[in-house]
Write a protein that binds this DNA or RNA. Structure first.
Length: 959
RNA sequence: GCAGGGGUAGCCAAGCAUGGUCUACGGCGACAGACUCAAGAUCUGUUCCUGAAGAGGUUCGGGGGUUCAAAUCCCUUCCCCUGCACCA
């Protein structure tokens, strides 16, 4: 039997491209729907469904304009919020501003001193002159940028944030809330006082030393080192303090190094006379209570040749000249341990003094003098080779720290690993007044005011006691029951909670924040005032409506609302409490990876400490960053960040939303790539055109194909829903925007045109898109004749009735045939004039399914199956063909997945299915196609290919 | 110091928990073709190597191991990156 060859018009290329003049005007469409949403207040949280979902992102600091990188996390949050709405939750998605701390003050200062970059940025970003003038006031900075974030960023991106609950951390109500929180912490004995060391500028007061270098002009990545200062004594009892990071090496000291070119100063330190560098005295005076500089100075060279006594071991050692002893580093005086410190070894060699190194650490891989060996290894000859010396020092130090053991020369510490004994030695020496400590930056840190930043002791700093054993344990236990994404972070959290130490909770200075209730003029620092804040979103709604006044926000009020303690003073308290009980706890708190070790741990611990058990956070979602090319974090200071407002116009916000979701999983850094975003923009327009175009199709039914489309859509829905439930947003977006489109294109190319099927398919597709590209979805929804918001519709659910495994296998067969033909064409490099397809005979189909049955039961035994088959009188005449066939398919069948196994077992008329697709096949290969069944009579088979036909793998002959 | 993350084809990036269905999702780029006045638009195909019939071979930082079977488990080694200390 032969079929007429049909050449069909290609719908995809022909008709659709002819609509090009009809362009997708995303900017006006976005505006249109945003206006409608916010007019209808669909973003305002309502208590209706008795099923709630509370999510929010870690509120941003208010320090200037944001860039496209920031929108990633916000977008995740909105997509999840929209998804949850559509699957039937009352969603509370509020937002606020973290206004406390330095950032807004810093910004205001820049405006005040007329910083050029800042003013230019403001003008470029469209900030009116009048407003700029006001921005010398930090509170105005907060006000201005809050409005920018809301209007220019969040609303512009279509975020259904409940803006009626907007709040910030410097409002009077919030401060009352924080004070209540600190009263709670105090009551629970979680506020403690102890000395603290912090970066401090003599001019400006406390400063932050961090990589963004907000406060400092230089040294942002400096670390604070903890030096041990060992008290060596001269003959007259004067102290020669040597600073070291390795106090345990005191047993190996052979001499001292003093810089002969330096003039040393003296000071009275706790009634001891110390000789050290001038810089050291200044530093000490910030860190110790009783430091009085004395007039007397001593030239370094005058000290050389004297001797001093090593503390603890009371050995007399000489003082030698060492030019590498830097007066700006620690005390300026160095003890020499030539066996274990490469600097000391080389200096000793250069001094030509007849001094033997004393080895006190046994370490694998080194012999009698690790320092010497490291120097020899790197070919170091002189004290001036600092780079190599640092490398040698690092090498020796690391090796000794991790694997070294103190030897018999170390008295009571002998036989113990360095990593275990280091602190013990230090503490013992301090105990005996033979040593003290001194903090020092690893590199010079210069304040913005050009002054050198010191480290200052605050003797009675208040801390939140996160080290509390009970609190830590309870928090760790609690995290096990939380929904935390990614999974890795869930595993890290207990370790982080263990590691998280006490946090200095207050500071003095002109920063914004809440006054600390137990010490006047001290402000609670910004991390500590941002731990329970989601709870405030319940109140802020009432505060903003002026229903709840600041004076009413007493401790009793908070006790009642949050803890259920006491009685309500007025009905409003009950309303608010009921709201709190409805919405709280938070289901998802979403934040960038920078919050992993700071914000999230304290967020959990404060809830565990203060809130009732059922109000503890349910989930945390951590997302990674958008980086610039080259993996650098986008930052304003480094430049190159694309402004949000411009980007929104350039690409469209739906495209950007999809870009954030699809370019990588939430748990990797992604590079901001304008070309890539452009691709997503094109995709928005393509989908828009595609959907519009479908209406002009001529209605036509193809049962198998139509059923396949319905079936595959259900498969997609299933995958999408599963992915959404675990916030695997990349998979969801991939299915919705790529796979579904691919399916549809396949359907159309195959000649599918069933109006009813397509209509319902498109409706479902639009619904699926809605959480991710809501503007596009609304616009398309409207073209479907809908009057309501798609954002308010129910999300599609999986419908098993539409699954048609038979038709899925049919399309699988078809693609298989196409793949095989393509491969043959590729290998033979021929241009086909005719393609013959031979489906396998009935007996093979029968045997194939039997083999599948056996495989499904995991007892496929080829020999057994052959025997069984031969017992069948119908099969018997086929003889050897049977055994050959079974032997061939046995291995293949075993590797078929369980799912496919069931599907393949369903009988399929391969010939009919392929025949239905014959016009498509001939169109794809540009030649006539003939389909034969192996059981047919008079089959055209010149190359004797027919015998190769197997089920789902027809034989092929190409001319 | 303490704590953590990662090395996958030209690039980005899934997969690794529960080993086989992984030549390894998807995207980008590149190449070819289609449609076009044209396009950074769209559609189709190809994109590790070999192959004139639908096949075979080699890959997931390096080395070793467990296993019938490893990107996935174990050991070892090299290399990148991040967080924290009054930034948030």
């Amino acid at each position: 039997m032969r079929y007429e060859i049909l050449y069909k018009t290609n719908l995809m290329s022909d008709k659709i491209t002819s609509m090009d003049e009809n362009t997708y005007n995303y900017v006006s469409i976005e505006r249109k729907w945003q206006n409608k949403w916010f007019e209808a207040n669909i973003n305002v949280a309502q208590r209706e469904k008795q099923k709630k979902f509370f999510l929010h992102f870690a509120y941003p600091g208010v320090s200037g304009y944001l860039h496209v990188g920031h929108m990633r996390g916000f977008t995740y949050c909105d997509v999840i919020a929209r998804y949850k709405r559509m699957i039937g939750f009352d969603v509370l998605f509020p937002a606020g501003f973290h206004a406390s701390g330095i950032p807004s003050v810093g910004f205001a200062k820049k405006v005040e001193r007329q910083d050029e970059d800042t003013l230019r940025l403001l003008k470029q970003s469209g900030c009116p002159e009048k407003v700029i003038k006001r921005l010398t006031d930090p509170v105005e900075v907060v006000k201005y940028f809050s409005s920018v974030y809301v209007d220019k960023y969040w609303k512009r991106f279509g975020f259904l944030i409940d803006y009626t609950r907007q709040m910030n951390t410097i409002s009077e109500g919030y401060k009352k809330f924080i004070q209540w929180q600190f009263h709670q912490l105090h009551e629970k004995k979680l506020l403690i006082q102890k000395p603290h060391f912090a970066p401090y500028c003599p001019n400006c007061g406390p400063v932050a030393v961090d990589k963004s270098e907000t406060d400092v002009a230089q040294g942002g990545s400096a670390e604070i080192l903890d030096f041990s200062v060992l008290k060596f004594t001269l003959n007259d009892g004067t102290i020669l303090p040597a600073a070291t990071l390795r106090p345990e090496t005191i047993f190996g000291v052979t001499n001292m190094w003093v810089n002969p070119t330096v003039k040393y100063h003296t000071a009275l330190v706790n009634n001891e006379i110390w000789i050290c560098s001038k810089e050291c005295i200044q530093k000490l005076s910030y860190q110790h209570d009783n430091v009085q500089p004395l007039q007397k100075t001593i030239e370094g060279k005058d000290l050389i040749g004297k001797t001093c006594i090593v503390p603890e071991i009371n050995r007399e050692v000489p003082i030698l000249a060492g030019v590498f002893a830097d007066p700006t580093v620690a005390t300026g005086i160095v003890m020499s341990v030539p066996a274990h410190a490469p600097y000391d070894w080389i200096a000793l060699v250069e001094s030509k003094e007849p001094i033997e190194a004393i080895k006190i650490i046994d370490v694998k891989g080194f012999g009698n003098n690790p320092a010497k060996e490291a120097c020899d290894h790197l070919g170091i000859k002189s004290q001036t080779e600092t780079e190599k010396l640092n490398e040698a020092t690092d090498m020796v130090y690391k090796k000794e720290f991790h694997t070294g053991i103190l030897n018999e020369k170390c008295g009571q510490y002998a036989g113990i690993k360095i990593s275990e004994i280091k602190d013990t030695v230090k503490n013992d020496l301090i105990q005996k007044s033979l040593a003290t400590t001194m903090k020092e930056f690893s590199e010079p840190v210069i304040c913005r005011c050009k002054e050198k930043v010191m480290i200052k002791q605050i003797p009675d700093q208040w801390f939140i006691k996160y080290s509390d054993a009970h609190l830590t344990q309870e928090s760790k236990d609690y995290t096990a029951s939380m929904n935390i994404y990614p999974q890795e972070y869930k595993e890290d959290l207990p370790k982080i909670l263990d590691w998280f130490g006490d946090r200095a909770a207050i500071r003095r200075g002109s920063w914004l924040g809440t006054e600390f209730p137990y010490k006047k003029d001290w402000i609670i620092e910004p991390i500590s005032d941002s731990t329970l804040y989601p709870a405030y979103y319940v109140l802020s709604s009432y505060v903003n409506q002026n229903k709840l006044t600041v004076t009413e926000m007493t401790d009793e009020f908070f006790d009642y609302v949050f803890l259920g303690i006491g009685i309500p003073k007025q009905p409003l308290w009950q309303t608010i409490q009921s709201d709190f009980n409805y919405w709280y706890p938070v289901d998802i708190n979403l934040g960038g990876k920078e919050h992993k070790t700071v914000h999230f741990p304290v967020y959990i611990m404060n809830h565990v400490a203060i809130m009732p058990e059922q109000k503890r956070p349910q989930g945390i979602f951590v997302h990674w960053w958008v980086t610039q090319k080259g993996k650098e974090k986008i930052s304003k200071s480094k430049g190159g960040a694309e402004p949000i407002v411009e980007a929104a116009v350039m690409y469209g916000v739906d495209a950007m939303r999809l870009y954030y979701l699809h370019i990588g999983s939430p748990f990797v850094d992604i590079e901001w790539d304008p070309d890539a975003v452009m691709k997503y923009k094109n995709r928005m327009a393509t989908i828009w055109r595609l959907v519009k175009q479908l209406s002009i199709l001529k209605d036509q039914q193809q049962k198998n194909l139509d059923n396949w489309l319905k079936s595959i859509l259900q498969r997609r829905i299933q995958k999408i829903l599963t992915a959404f439930e675990t916030y695997d947003l990349r998979v969801s977006s991939n299915e919705i925007f790529f796979e579904i489109q691919k399916d549809l294109q396949w359907y159309l190319r195959r000649g599918g045109a069933n109006k009813k099927v397509l209509e319902s398919y498109i409706r479902t597709w639009i619904l699926l898109m809605a959480p991710i590209t809501p503007h596009l979805a609304e616009e398309l929804w409207e073209t479907q004749g809908e009057k309501q918001f798609v954002s308010n519709e129910s999300y599609p659910v999986f419908n098993a009735k539409d699954i048609s495994e038979k038709d899925e296998v049919g399309e699988y067969l078809l693609t298989k045939v196409i793949d095989d033909v393509n491969e043959i064409i590729k290998v033979t490099k021929m241009t086909p004039k005719k393609i013959c397809i031979y489906t396998s005979p009935a007996w093979k189909q029968q045997l194939f399914r039997k083999a599948l049955e056996h495989a499904a039961q995991k007892n496929l035994n080829p020999g057994q199956l052959i025997k069984e088959t031969m017992d069948d009188p119908v099969m018997k005449p086929l003889g050897q063909q049977v055994s050959q066939f079974i032997a061939k398919i046995a291995a293949e069948v075993k590797t078929i997945s369980e799912n496919d196994c069931t599907r393949f077992m369903i009988p399929l008329d391969e010939k009919k299915h392929l025949t239905d697709a014959i016009s498509y096949l001939s169109e794809v290969f540009h030649c006539p196609v003939e389909i034969y069944g192996a059981d047919d009579a008079n089959v055209y088979d010149p190359a004797k290919k027919i015998k190769f036909a197997t089920p789902l793998r027809p034989a092929l002959y190409i001319e």
